[in-house]
Amino acid sequence: MIIQHPDLGPRDSSEFVYKGDAELLFRPERTENADQEIFHDYLYLRNNPAGKHRELWYHEYGDRSWLVVTRDTTNHEILKVEYVKDYIKSYKVK
């Protein structure tokens, strides 16, 4: 798989470390009476879709940037690559 890095261009996926579903960026807030189940669901449960999946790739053997890659899990086609900070911005707008 070739990942189109926003600044460094096409990079082999083996330069990256895979960190899973991009939903993990949105950790629930800690409150006084933090609900155990909310944290359980955040840490352990996954949507695991067959199809479009937004996921975290860390460019460990590169510029150490965190990327959100949108990829089709049924055929490995990469649909979009963006920096985490840009993704979070656009996520907040939605």
């Binding site: 798989m1 895979y18 899973g20 996921e55 899990t73 049924t74």
Partner: peptide, 9 residues
């Protein structure tokens, strides 16, 4: 990485 494709890289 997450995959439902029955082939790897």
């Amino acid at each position: 990485y997450n995959s439902y494709a029955q082939r790897g890289n």
